[in-house]
């Protein structure tokens, strides 16, 4: 077992206050559609998606091509809808400029990707501190906050390692710590356990749902077992929301 891959996941530390003005912001999609043109053909990636994401975890499931990734792209402001809109409280995300959407993401959203996407030239703690650098926090605060988060995900001893020296599970935990760096009210996770072995999967999932308890966690996954741990499950098919389910407790 690699250093830091403990069987029992450590507890996340109490939130360290950052800019939490929009903590209670409600993320909602209204009649969200995305169509692409592929030569002569029009591809409908998402059609008429309307949903208000409450606090707690929401899993988005569906087969490949059902529109899960497109939905996440639109909700996060990575891409703009063809029709409809994304609202964060009163803020119409789809009407903002690219840089304004980046600022909204920085202050309100955290991301955990399937591929971890750590910056390869930065050490674990520097990766975690990166959003804090973007937010303009002083070096001492950045370092302290990053190390506290790494401790919370059980990787303090690996703080000065480059991503290439970390296992998949460790990299994903660093990515989770990075997503929580600015204590965002919304957390996106796109197939967060897709590339992990069983032990790491359990550990990352546990940390993720724990972090998602007091936030709006939007989890895109193929993994129905992982999705079943969420408070609600949205089923997509052919770019449409076909069902909203609440998993049975236990």
């Amino acid at each position: 077992m690699k250093n830091g891959d403990q069987a029992t996941p450590p507890q996340l530390p109490p939130r360290i206050g950052a800019n939490r003005e929009s903590t209670m912001a409600n993320l909602r999609a209204e009649n969200l559609s995305k169509r692409y043109r592929q030569g002569e053909r029009e591809v409908v990636a998402l059609e008429g998606f309307t949903f208000s994401f409450p606090q707690g975890s929401t899993a988005v499931v569906g087969p490949s091509g059902s529109g899960k990734t497109t939905l996440l792209n639109l909700l996060a402001g990575f891409d703009l809808p063809t029709e409809g809109g994304v609202y964060l409280g009163e803020l119409a995300l789809h009407q903002l400029s690219e840089d304004q959407r980046a600022e909204v993401r920085l202050r309100n959203m955290g991301f955990v990707f399937q591929q971890w996407n750590l910056i390869p030239t930065l050490t674990a703690w520097e990766n975690v501190a990166f959003p804090l650098l973007l937010a303009g926090l002083p070096p001492k605060t950045r370092r302290e906050r990053a190390l506290a988060l790494l401790e919370a995900v059980g990787l303090l001893e690996r703080a000065h390692h480059l991503p290439s020296r970390l296992s998949g599970g460790e990299q994903q935990r660093v990515a989770l710590a990075r997503a929580l760096a600015l204590d965002p009210p919304i957390l996106f996770a796109d197939e967060p356990t897709g590339n992990l072995d069983a032990s790491s999967r359990e550990q990352v999932a546990s940390l993720l749902f724990e972090a998602g308890q007091a936030r709006t966690l939007i989890l895109v996954t193929h993994d129905l077992e992982l999705a079943s741990q969420a408070d609600r499950i949205l089923h997509l098919r052919g770019g449409r929301l076909v069902r909203v389910a609440t998993p049975a407790p236990g």
Binding site: A102, E103, L106, R107, M109, F111, F113, L134
Partner: peptide, 12 residues
């Protein structure tokens, strides 16, 4: 890497 930075909130 630049995509990740932008996703995390880096401006252009």
């Amino acid at each position: 890497e630049f995509g990740v930075m932008r996703a995390l909130g880096a401006r252009r």
